[in-house]
């Protein structure tokens, strides 16, 4: 402490309880990421490293591995464990009508534009467990557009797609979702959209009928259709700049002229190579329109 102003600096007689859990080094994380590409064909190399490292270390601690070698071997050789790994390190936290102003803008400004189209194709890229897809289905139903709409919901993690298919969400979230729904401009009784079954809320099957599910990896897969609206919210925050750029090009290739791209509340097109082709819609929401 030679150069710290030490006066007034105090120490408490507390125990230094050393954590014993295994903590992978940066180098070990690199090895794991390399293995995933080589053995399983999954490329997480361009994911934001801090978040990825945190999640891998949390998994290693939860699954009580005693050494890096043991973890590495398991991940390389056990396909079931690899599936579990993908489920655990991809972020699957989502909400219905999260960011209520965003949904209000969709309802009031974007859907009336889409309404003029004979067939509405919407892509939820990185849909997770589907709360946003069902929110969109509700908006379309209320605008009487659901019948002529197709909602493509894709995710890297096959396990979550099963949940989208089921359309069942935890009952204890419904109070929050109902509030979100009302704040986003919803006029109906939110509970009319689901049936309560013990701890679960099963959403109306009519809402799920127009949802098409597919396993799609923004890192490695290409465009598969043309859409009037693509939503990819709080997915690219986990990507580095290079991978963000790839994803945005993919969205650009997949959007019709005058189509809309919706991102998460802290994401932007601003510094990307496609930004000159897009204009942000008038209010502060993160929705851009393809103008050229």
């Amino acid at each position: 402490m030679s150069y710290l102003p030490c006066y007034n600096v105090i120490y408490h007689n507390a125990d230094m309880n050393q954590e014993t859990s295994l903590d992978l080094s940066d180098n070990e994380i690199e090895i794991v990421l390399h293995d995933l590409v080589e053995v399983h064909g999954y490329d997480f190399v361009n994911y934001s490293r801090a978040s990825l490292k945190r999640r891998i270390n949390r998994l290693v601690a939860n699954d009580k591995f005693l050494s890096f070698a043991e973890f590495r071997y398991r991940l390389r050789s056990d396909d079931v464990y690899f599936k579990h790994f993908v489920e655990e390190i991809t972020v699957n936290v989502t909400e219905m009508f999260r960011d209520t102003q965003f949904y209000r803008t969709l309802r009031e400004e974007i859907l009336p534009v889409l309404a003029t189209s004979p067939l509405i194709r919407i892509w939820h890229a990185g849909c997770s467990t589907g709360e946003e897809v069902y929110s969109m289905a509700i908006l379309l139903q209320e605008a009487r557009l659901l019948q002529k709409s197709l909602l493509y919901a894709t995710d890297i993690n096959p396990a979550v797609l099963e949940k989208v298919r089921a359309g069942v969400f935890p009952m204890n979230q419904m109070k929050q979702y109902s509030e979100n729904y009302i704040l986003s401009g919803g006029k109906n009784d939110f509970s009319s959209y689901y049936t309560a079954q013990y701890n679960a809320a099963k959403f109306d099957e009519q809402l799920g009928k127009k949802i098409i599910l597919a396993n799609h990896n923004l890192v490695s897969d290409s465009s598969f259709n043309e859409f009037q609206l693509i939503l990819c919210r709080n997915v690219m925050i986990y990507f580095d700049k290079e991978l963000q750029e790839r994803a945005l090009k993919l969205f650009d290739d997949s959007l019709e002229p005058l189509g809309f791209l919706a991102l998460g509340s802290k994401e932007t097109l601003k510094f990307s190579s496609i930004s000159h082709k897009y204009r942000q819609v008038a209010n502060k929401e993160k929705i851009w329109r393809k103008i050229r």
């Binding site: 934001s48 801090a50 978040s51 999640r55 972020v91 936290v93 709080n234 925050i237 986990y238 998460g264």
Partner: peptide, 21 residues
Amino acid sequence: APADYHVLIEKDHTLSLDVSE
């Protein structure tokens, strides 16, 4: 830090956001 996001720091001294649990 924005409400409802975790804030992490990357090795290249940029800030990244995370909406995980």
